[in-house]
């Protein structure tokens, strides 16, 4: 029945990330949507702007011991430890399904060294069914004492350059918010050739059980996500969008079309829905529908009219 009332894709929702056109600005965030199959009974996957899959490394990773997650006020901490099936199994087992979905697939990649990222990009080059790469630079750089790639502009640029050299699809670099000035990193990866920038990854946090006097996560610290981080994410997207020319993808606590539209006003060309998928597996598609309704209601020719259209009193406009 569904296909009979299938709506034509609304051209007013289309956005551009590098050479890639997305039918709408709503993607799912890495690590919150599995490999998409988990959501097939809830979401018409082809109606999404894109799907970002769980971060992939060269070798499979088992991840951290439990407990890995804990709920906090209006958010959650996770220390999954980047559990994933590794690039070879990803290509063999996940790509065949993903490439048949008729939705742009962003492959999120992570490594321990610049060379890991290079080898991942090279292995994924030429694989059918990949629309773009998203480079997670929030991981610890093993060769540099474990500080995140994303916290040093030179290292972040080196990773970006290495991936760009090997990749045959647009490259989006995903920034960590756990830095003093995110615009410095953003400009560094833009100069190194990034086709787009996504932010924010999770904010590092901690929770303690007073009764046992122990940390609530086995890993002691974890990444905070969900509605609690939205104000921080909006601020960072706003700052980065002003500092770079490439498209920005906004992430952090989005669980409604209103949230997504706020990110677009702040300067985001597209958004990613993360933690909200856990609570409402239909969240991403409902946000597409909500944005479409808003564009209609406001009689916009294109969603692009809203990108960065934030009105700041006293700053003209």
């Amino acid at each position: 029945m569904d296909c009979l009332i299938e709506k034509k894709k609304n051209p007013a929702l289309a956005v551009q990330i590098g050479s890639l056109t997305l039918s709408n600005p709503v993607l799912t965030a890495s690590g919150t949507f599995g490999y998409a199959k988990e959501f097939e009974s809830f979401v018409h996957l082809h109606r999404l702007g894109g799907v970002v899959v769980k971060g992939i490394s060269l070798e499979p990773r088992a991840g951290n011991p439990p407990p890995r997650i804990v709920e906090t006020s209006c958010g959650m901490l996770n220390a999954i430890g980047l559990e994933n099936v590794g690039v070879e199994r990803f290509i063999a087992e996940k790509i065949p399904y993903l490439s048949n979905l008729n939705v742009p697939v962003f492959v999120n990649i992570l490594g321990d060294s610049v060379d890991d990222y290079r080898r991942l990009a090279s292995r994924l080059a030429g694989v059918d069914g990949i629309a773009a790469l998203e480079v997670n630079i929030s991981c610890p750089n093993v060769k540099k004492g474990g500080s995140a790639f994303g916290s040093d502009p030179d290292v972040a640029a080196a990773v970006t350059r290495a991936v760009k050299q090997e990749s045959d699809v647009p490259v989006v670099v995903k920034l960590s918010p756990n830095v003093t000035d995110v615009t410095v990193i953003a400009q560094a990866v833009e100069s190194a050739g990034a086709d787009g920038i996504s932010l924010i990854n999770t904010l590092i946090g901690m929770a303690i059980d007073l009764r046992t006097r122990r940390p609530k996560l086995a890993n002691v610290i974890g990444g905070l996500s969900g509605p609690a981080i939205k104000p921080v994410a909006l601020r960072m997207v706003h700052q980065v969008a002003k500092a770079v020319c490439v498209p920005v993808i906004g992430i952090g606590g989005i669980d409604s079309a209103e949230d997504a539209l706020e990110f677009i006003l702040a300067g985001a060309t597209a958004v990613q829905v993360g933690t909200a998928n856990f609570i409402n597996p239909r969240a991403s598609e409902e946000i597409v529908e909500g944005i479409a309704a808003y564009v209609d209601e406001q009689q916009l020719g294109s969603i692009c009219e809203l990108i960065g259209a934030l009105k700041i009193p006293g700053e003209g406009g």
Binding site: G31, E38, R68, I69, N78, I80, E83, N277, P281
Partner: peptide
């Protein structure tokens, strides 16, 4: 029983250590 965020295999938060060393 473990802590769970999604209940459907998406978050990988509900780890159970197994005898064979895997999760």
């Amino acid at each position: 029983e473990t802590a769970m965020a999604c209940g459907m295999g998406a978050c990988l938060g509900c780890t159970v250590p197994l005898q064979d060393g895997s999760y």
